[in-house]
Each structure stands twice: as structure tokens, then as C-alpha cells.
Design a binder for these strands. Structure first.
Lengths: 139, 139
DNA sequence: ATGTATGCAAAACATTTGCACCTGG
DNA sequence: CCAGGTGCAAATGTTTTGCATACAT
């Protein structure tokens, strides 16, 4: 039961929190904006306020349950944190997102932070491009 | 004369555009938000509207004169495009920004895009951490 | 002269917050 | 029952836009 999951994190297992967590877990698209979450819940007939969606996602972020990304369009996108760090490859035409992980890049990043005597807290790599599907459509 | 520079790009050499371009060229801080540019101009006694700053920076971006970044705080930061691609190392305490370039990372990025049959248009790598200065202050 | 750029104020967004009401434990 | 969570509406911060005026060529 997910309510246990939330309680472990010190979060009361309220309906909106459960619904949002379930949505993130069961949706085929791992990456969602607050608006996306809000609309998805409305469609299923769940009456959750947009402000609550933002509050809950922000709490989840604080609890380490989700990660917030800022891609190059200024809007926040949330994704369940399954513990496996990865970076992102994004299609600028259709918005599809592919996750990847490359140990060589990770190593170089650590080396660069060290060279500059930075205590690295986080890092993110976004590769933008046109996905194979969209290349077909626009020659 | 910079006015030639602007005209070559099809932009009328107006006062606000010249002032903003000069500011970007001569400021010791290469990375500036629209608000930063606006305030810097006010301080020098130049009466430029914030809306104009946004419009001019957006035109400059379209003309390839500046690059717009979205760091993890949702606000846009602009930097003169000198043609040398580089990535960024950012201090989460004091906001200072260091540029770097690593050919090994660039190579891996190209390889990854290729593996997924993406036609890469852009990419950005942000490393966040605490700079040496701020490490001293907060032990 | 004339088409374009500007400044201002208002609009448009994404996100946050204040507050009265509701709810989970 | 009661601390904490929620919904709504209003506030916020950033960026964009409409429109009358000013400017570069």
C-alpha cells in the first residue's frame, strides 16, 4: 500500500497525494509538468486544485520522491526518482524524452568539478535534437 | 563601429540596441538576466524600458549574437555568443559562473545522439556545486 | 517620409501564498 | 479533536504584447 510509503516520509496519506503518486507511477510518460498532472487528474474525475498539485510535487521533491527539471522552455517538469541518475535527450519537434546514462561523461564531470575545487551537488545534461520519427516527417 | 555590426544582421542601429550590445561586451560578468541588463543601463543613466531589453535580447538571440540559458531557477540568462561553445559550472551559494569545455564530453554527446538516431541541434551541461570561496565561509 | 523600434501599461504565463474550510489519524 | 492539508482566489515574478509616439535611414 502506497499510503505506508508516504507516511514513512512524514507525509500524511491524503487523497491528493496518493492520486498524484499513483499517476506518476502508472503513467506511460515519466515526465510531467504540474499542469499535465492537474489535467490528467481532472480527466479521471479527481477534483484536485492546481495549487495542491504544485504543493504536493514540491513536497515530493523535498522528500526525494521526485526530481524537478527545468528544460529550455522555462516550465518545470517532474519525474519519479527511482534512484538511477540519468540525463536526457529531448526532441525539439515532438517533445519526446529519452533517458540515458554514460559513465564516461559522469567521470569527466566529476573531474571538472574537482579541477575547479567545486563541491558538486548536482549536474544535468540535456541534448536537444530531432528524433528519428520527426526527421521522417520533415525532410 | 558597432552600428555596422548590427546593420549587417538586419537590425537598425538604435540607441537601446547599441547600449545593450556594448554592455554585454564590456561587462566583467558575461552572464546577465534581462533584469540585470535593465538595471545596469538605468545606473548609467540610460533610459531603456524593460520590455525593450527583452525584445532586443530576443532579437539578438535570433540573430545569433547572444545565447539564452535557463539555469535551474527558471529565469533566463543571456551571454554574448563568441562562437566558442562551452558548458557551465555554477555555484549554488553565490551564483558565480565558470565556463568550461571538454572535448571528451562533447564526443560522448555526439555518440549518444547518434546511437538514438537523433539529429542533434543543441546541448547543454550544467554542473552545480559550491565554489571554493563559499566552502570557506560555510564549514 | 515611412516603416520600424520604443516606452508604457496591461496581459499572459507559471508558480506561490493567504485564508477559511475540510480531513486523516 | 486538532494539526495539518486542501481549494479557491488573489499575489508574485518573469516575460510578452498592444498601442500611441519617437527615431533611423
Amino acid at each position: 500500500m502506497e499510503s505506508q510509503n508516504l507516511k514513512k516520509l512524514g507525509l500524511k496519506a491524503t487523497l491528493p497525494r496518493l492520486r498524484i503518486l499513483q499517476l506518476l507511477e502508472n503513467s506511460p510518460h515519466r515526465h510531467k509538468s504540474a499542469e499535465d498532472v492537474y489535467k490528467a487528474l481532472l480527466e479521471v474525475g479527481e477534483d484536485v486544485g492546481l495549487a495542491t498539485v504544485y504543493r504536493v510535487l514540491t513536497q515530493f521533491e523535498g522528500a526525494g520522491l521526485v526530481i524537478r527539471h527545468h528544460f529550455e522552455n522555462g516550465i518545470s517538469v517532474f519525474e519519479l526518482d527511482e534512484g538511477h541518475h540519468h540525463d536526457h535527450l529531448l526532441c525539439v519537434k515532438c517533445g519526446s524524452i529519452i533517458e540515458f546514462f554514460d559513465e564516461a561523461i559522469e567521470q569527466r564531470q566529476r573531474a571538472i568539478a574537482q579541477q575547479h575545487h567545486f563541491d558538486m551537488t548536482d549536474h544535468c545534461l540535456h541534448i536537444y535534437g530531432i528524433c528519428p520519427n520527426c526527421q521522417k516527417e520533415e525532410p
